[in-house]
Design a protein around this nucleic acid. Structure first.
Lengths: 370, 370
DNA sequence: TTGTAGGCGTTATCAA
DNA sequence: TTGATAACGCCTACAA
């Protein structure tokens, strides 16, 4: 008897509450209650247990608790990651970090649910283990998904929150207010004096993201309110895209024009290509972006844009699902998130005499000091 | 009796093997063996079971299996994410995707382990649930960590693989061959005819990443082999950095100079700032980057650089830890990964007469078509 | 305030 | 080839 007890306490680590109980001379149940901060446990007893936990390095077995409580305390963050869609990755990652930050407070772990689908049906994408088994308490889906996946996910998981997705309902959804963003940046261009407005992005194409429609809509609304028209063209945004026609570029990236880019990738390319054709953005050519990434905000503070923090969106999504999981009757009202305007210097006031063109970067923009 | 059975089969879903067994008139154990592809189960029986699985939507309970097998089939991907270190995030994410792709084949799930430490000790960073509890079968640590965390992680988890970390041992580590990369890009500049070499990055500062030393070392080696010297300066790489001195820029970003940037962030800034001071990279000024990201490879194919695929590093890390988990005696030899040279057009051949400066972007570089 | 008994759903070891 | 039985570690009634 004594031997076996000593053996257990000799090994410097202890794996179960029962072993811990042996070590301190209590029953397993008392140990359990001490660890759960049950009020019925005497303070002295609790301290004995806590000390033993440290001494023997006891760590609770997550599997056992999961089984007993029928809750895994794990939620998934789901996103698509065909390798030709890297931008999806980035925004999803920022969301993921926000989700993680918020949910870890409540003791939740985050699992990565990568949907590497190619075709729209992607019937086997859903065959990943998280879906085949009972494991996750809920899932946060970031981006767009085929309807077949939407249905299946909602069927298999008790709680689902949709972020930046085509799924948009009164409850359990998070989106940016894209129409507002398009409207906002366009107004800024107009305020700066630009009368010729050009949308740089896709217009009415198939299989695109809803934000393309919404931002363009906001742009057109703002222009319409000022009696202005909106022209448009687009750039290739990946390695496999067509090269941009230089004449198109010269036609649109021209003094007096205000460019509204769909995203910061296009803004980057415009900035780069405009130098190639000998034009400079920031004074007689204006440019605003409807969106940027955290990386862009860091490495290119000069971009005039709306900054909608995806980390923050992750936090909001986590709050929604957290509320749903801790209270079945939580309202979980969907949320539209409005980003904030970042002035930057690519949307400077239009200098009518064209003087600005020579030195379009303000000396105090933060990039340079003399 | 019959009633209760019918009740169970009426509800269109079944939660346990026992319920499934009831539904098909077998014992729970036989169902279990059929699902595990045990050879002792008759084919007809197996088919009955498989059909019932589909019919009743049975999904195994991960917690129960975890408890019984003492394996969670979950591994963590750990990285630091203080909010002022976004670049760490990006590379970690690419690694994470690779890890996920490789490990999901073997049925492993990936958990996010974000270390949001501020100070070097970060004693409570380790207090996240993954460390407090017994859950993960192993962890893949991406980036650098304080020694206190290194020790604790290795103490708490049976399998640890270090990726791009200061931890470098004969086993269980993955790194890029940074010295080789520095050497490689420098040779390319020298081949192109540049004789004045300038390193853009940190040199011998505290609390930096080992790759800074290694790349710089490779650069200096290559230069030394050709009897050349290496000058250096650095740029601010985040919002809180000091603004770059414009005289410094004019001193180094000048015809005949070959710039070697530590990473693509610096390359981007150089590219941008060089336009501001009226210089252009690509002909009489050369620039090569020791590193780029997947995003950069996509959106800036023109950058002359070494491309070391972090996704691939994730795959390699996953293979290491996968081998260790399936076979305790696996060698798990550490691996140095060499990236491939991407020619781009920022390291064009030096034109001695200075002609190249006017139109340094080759017309067929893929960005433009006339 | 503490202890005893039973079960969560799976897997492993028996026996049939 | 199949079935009964006993763990795995934790949590909740109920009893002391």
């Amino acid at each position: 008897m004594v031997d076996s007890l000593e053996q257990k306490t000799q090994g410097n680590h202890v794996r179960t509450q029962a072993e811990l109980a042996d070590a301190v001379g209590l029953s397993q149940v008392t140990v359990q209650r001490a660890l759960a901060n049950h009020p019925s446990v005497r303070d002295a007893t609790r301290r004995r247990v806590e000390e033993a936990v440290r001494k023997y390095g006891y760590r609770p077995n997550a599997a056992a608790r999961m089984m007993r409580t029928r809750k895994s305390k794990q939620i998934g963050v789901m996103f698509r990651n065909a390798l030709d869609r890297p931008l999806t990755n980035l925004s999803a990652f920022e969301v993921l970090l926000g989700v993680n930050q918020e949910l870890e407070k409540a003791g939740y772990l985050v699992n990565v649910v990568r949907i590497a689908d190619v075709d729209a049906e992607a019937t086997d994408a859903i065959e990943a283990r998280v879906f085949r088994e009972q494991l996750l308490d809920g899932i946060i889906a970031v981006g767009q998904f085929p309807e077949s996946i939407v249905e299946k996910v909602e069927d298999l998981l008790p709680h689902v929150v949709w972020v930046e997705s085509q799924v948009w309902r009164p409850r359990n959804c998070i989106r940016r207010d894209e129409v507002y963003h398009g409207h906002l940046v366009t107004n800024k261009l107009i305020e700066a004096g630009f009368k010729r407005l050009v949308w740089v992005g896709r217009v009415r194409e198939k299989s695109h993201h809803f934000s393309e429609d919404d931002r363009y809509l906001g742009v057109c609304q703002a222009a319409h309110e000022h009696g202005l028209a909106v022209e448009h063209f687009d750039l290739p945004v990946d390695l496999h895209g067509e090269p941009i026609d230089i004449k198109t570029l010269e036609k649109f990236v021209t003094p007096g024009t205000g460019l509204i880019t769909y995203d910061s990738v296009r803004a980057r390319e415009i900035s780069f290509l405009s130098h190639v054709i000998g034009r400079r953005i920031g004074a007689d050519i204006g440019m605003v972006s409807c969106e940027n990434t955290y990386i862009d905000a860091t490495s290119w503070p000069g971009l005039s844009c709306v900054h909608a923090d995806r980390f923050e969106m992750g936090v909001e999504a986590a709050k929604l699902i957290g509320a749903a999981m801790s209270d079945e009757d939580a309202p979980c009202v969907s949320k539209l998130i409005r980003g904030e305007w970042r002035a930057g210097y690519t949307c400077g006031a239009l200098s009518v005499d064209g003087e600005g063109g020579a030195s379009c970067i303000p000396p105090n923009c933060g990039l340079l000091s003399s």
